[in-house]
């Protein structure tokens, strides 16, 4: 009823504005997901599939979704495993979702561990990608233990502009060292929170994969 009423209002008030200049990006979502592929974390990728499927199920026509791996040098388009901007037509969108899932499934089956973990580089790549796609809501999901290990020579100690971004860390598992010293785990999360918020972004942690609703809030 409310929708019908608003439609009527929109019809009356926006009739004058209706000259083919309807907005296309003002209501779209953009999600960029980073998958940690370092060390034994690859075993966790089955959980990442769950998250990807959840995101795909909640994506609408016009939304943008990309999945990229975190490896030694993540600031690269080559690390993008699958990317899509869904078509305006719901029927085509469904086909695109099917294809996307297949790509991810193939990747998970054949993934190889990387030696280093360049989370910052991946985050930078996500920011660049989403800024280019320019959706209304920009979300970066980091599926990682958030322990960054950079290859010598890689420079990542600079602020990242994250204004308008929501950065969600998921499945931040506790490492052996974290169990021994929990302050290490808490300190790691705090460091990332500060880094994201310093860049103007919002920081969220989701460890319970049954509660993924905050991704689209």
């Amino acid at each position: 009823m409310k929708r019908l009423f608003y439609s009527l209002l929109a019809l009356l008030t926006a009739a004058t504005l209706f000259s083919g200049c309807s907005e296309k990006t003002a209501h779209t979502k953009g999600v960029y997901m980073l998958l940690d592929t370092s060390g034994t974390y690859t075993e966790e990728l089955v959980k990442a599939q769950q998250i990807i499927n959840y995101i795909l199920a909640n994506m609408n026509p016009g939304d943008t979704f990309a999945v990229s791996r975190i490896d030694t040098g993540s600031f690269s388009e080559k690390d993008i495993l699958a990317k899509v901007t869904f078509d305006d037509r719901p029927s085509v969108t469904n086909e695109q979702k099917r294809g996307f899932r297949q790509k991810i499934d193939e990747f998970v089956k054949s993934v190889k561990s990387s030696v280093y973990t360049d989370v910052s580089g991946g985050l930078l790549q996500a920011v660049e990608f989403l800024n280019e796609a320019n959706p209304a809501d920009k979300t970066v999901i980091i599926f990682s233990d958030m322990k960054e290990e950079l290859k010598p020579g890689y420079k990542r100690d600079f602020p990242i502009q994250l204004g308008g971004f929501k950065v969600i860390a998921t499945n931040v598992i506790k490492l052996r060292s974290d169990i021994k010293d929990p302050t290490e785990y808490l300190g790691r999360l705090d460091m990332w929170k500060k880094k994201v918020e310093a860049g103007g972004g919002d920081w969220v942690v989701i460890n319970d994969l049954e509660r993924l609703e905050p991704i689209f809030k």
């Binding site: 009527l8 929109a10 019809l11 926006a14 309807s22 296309k24 026509p61 719901p90 029927s91």
Partner: peptide, 21 residues
């Protein structure tokens, strides 16, 4: 939405809704 697209809006309202109306 199949005809006018699911991502087109007139103000805050989907063009498909307006078209249906």
């Amino acid at each position: 939405q199949e005809m006018v697209g699911g991502n087109s809006y007139i103000g805050p309202i989907k063009t498909a809704d307006v078209a249906a109306l």
